[in-house]
Design a protein around this nucleic acid. Structure first.
Lengths: 279, 279
DNA sequence: CCTTGACCTTATACCAAATATAGGGTTTAT
DNA sequence: ATAAACCCTATATTTGGTATAAGGTCAAGG
């Protein structure tokens, strides 16, 4: 019987010598024979079977520890269980990745929208598709407070997201909403912030739909409430001038950008939007 | 302006204190203010914006180093590139996982097939669906050699797999093939081993299709060539006795099991199969 | 028999992205 | 005043390896 040196074994199995030594040390794959004097490791070609299984299980996503436990069990047939478990794990991973992908696509679209957006302060009429949002009621009128409070509320929103098991990738596209009845009374009041979710997101009590329609919009960046109020007034005045009819809630949509300012303050692209009907 | 202790900051952002200290040390997020005497870290609530971005980019799969580079660039707008890159990465991951999933399903099916298989040596007639295999010609007649040589050939097959960019998960379901013309001449000769791939696998010159049809099959486990030959003879004799007509290649399908034997030798479930027609 | 180069050994350090722990100092509320 | 809660630094651990150094061994050729 001819034995293989660690280098030969490594080459045959596409693994590094170092890795084989590691497997030896943790007891995952001991060489068939070790020279007492030199410490040289010698492997039997048939040990490739075990190494195959190790690499196979590793591919399935198991840790070396798990693999060792599994192989130490010497329990034939348990491999099926492992396979089932790993399949479910993979399914979960795929779902997660798909979710992430969607969120990224959303973010890409948002950013593109903003880079090709009209100049700051120009009012445009846009047709916007139906959108789904996940609302969070923070209990206070955010316009009564400053950016600090807004940050705290964002943290609360995030807790909310976590409860809904949403990936954090959605967190870069948030907004606030002033309900139509408040707007009609001239009361600039909002106790709700939200984030946009995918259109095929399962609708539950937290999810609300913003219907498609015609919106009067105005863009600006670098967020502050006084700036928002200024542009909101501009937008409302324009709507009044043109005798449009407001038919829904005021929305302030924000896309968070890289925070690069001295105090690392939040920098955002903002798009205010009010659904209207031409009279 | 009220500042946050590291614990408050950590709690607000669902991150550990340790992680925040780490981020400080690597320069990813320095506290707004550090007490000179006590070394206590104090954060500004607005730094949540930067932390959000860090966590967002982390979610996208970027390393802390990459994130730091990105944020240090202070180049607004590069986020789009990052998003595109990460989207492609996710697409690749999803594809890979789907591949793995399929291979696992195949393995599960194989194992189930064997646990519910007839007793060793019993000949059964089965209808088997169309299957795709990836063939490798090893140049020698494997039946002229022993298990050691077979292991070497398996290594070559694996090199072959790697060239075809197949995930290693397929490697647990291999087989060998004796062509009909050899069988007809009574020549038990095989220089081809293969592995099963998914049905929707893209067909190229290495891929071969085993057509669906009726097969005479015999099951056994613990592989050795002499055992295979014994059962192959049994199978052939039975076919002759029953006056079936052999209409295609002899296939020896193996499912590798956990290697648990003293020398860690390969243990396999074997299913011999010969396509036949009733006269 | 000697040398050379390829190969082997152990030991240690490193990577990412944290977590855990020890040992000691500080704040805060009662 | 004092205890609980909190903070600090420094070090070790985790996972699955890779990299390197310093030194020992093997096989082939002269």
């Amino acid at each position: 019987m001819d034995l293989l040196s660690i280098g030969e074994m490594a080459e045959l199995n596409n693994i590094s010598r170092q890795a084989l030594r590691l497997y030896d040390r943790i007891g995952l794959l001991a060489p068939y024979y070790v020279d007492e004097n030199t410490g040289y490791r010698y492997y039997d070609i048939r040990q490739c079977a075990r190494l195959d299984m190790i690499q196979y299980m590793k591919e399935l996503g198991m840790s070396l520890k798990q693999i060792k436990q599994q192989l130490d069990l010497k329990d034939i047939g348990v491999i099926q269980e492992v396979l089932e478990r790993q399949k479910n794990l993979i399914d979960k991973n795929i779902e997660e990745l798909k979710h992430k992908r969607k969120a990224i696509c959303r973010a890409i679209k948002s950013y593109n929208g903003y880079t090709t957006s009209p100049r700051e302060g120009v009012i445009v009429i846009e047709h916007l598709p139906q959108r789904k949002i996940l609302c969070y009621n923070c209990g206070i009128n955010i316009y009564d407070y400053g950016i600090d409070t807004y940050e705290y509320i964002l943290r609360e929103l995030r807790e909310h997201i976590k409860l809904n098991e949403l990936p954090m990738v959605y967190f870069c596209n948030v907004g606030s909403i002033v309900r139509k009845q408040m707007l009609d009374k001239g009361n600039f009041f909002s106790n709700e912030i939200f984030l946009f979710v995918d259109d095929d997101f399962e609708t539950n009590e937290d999810i609300e739909i913003i219907p498609s329609g015609t919106f009067a919009c105005i863009y600006f960046d670098s967020f502050s409430f006084s700036k928002e109020k200024k542009y909101a007034r501009l937008l409302m005045d324009n709507i009044k001038e043109n005798k449009y009819k407001i038919i829904g809630d005021y929305i302030c949509e924000a896309v968070t950008e890289l925070p690069i300012f001295p105090q690392n303050e939040r920098n955002m692209f903002i798009k205010l939007q009010i659904p209207i009907k031409f009279r």
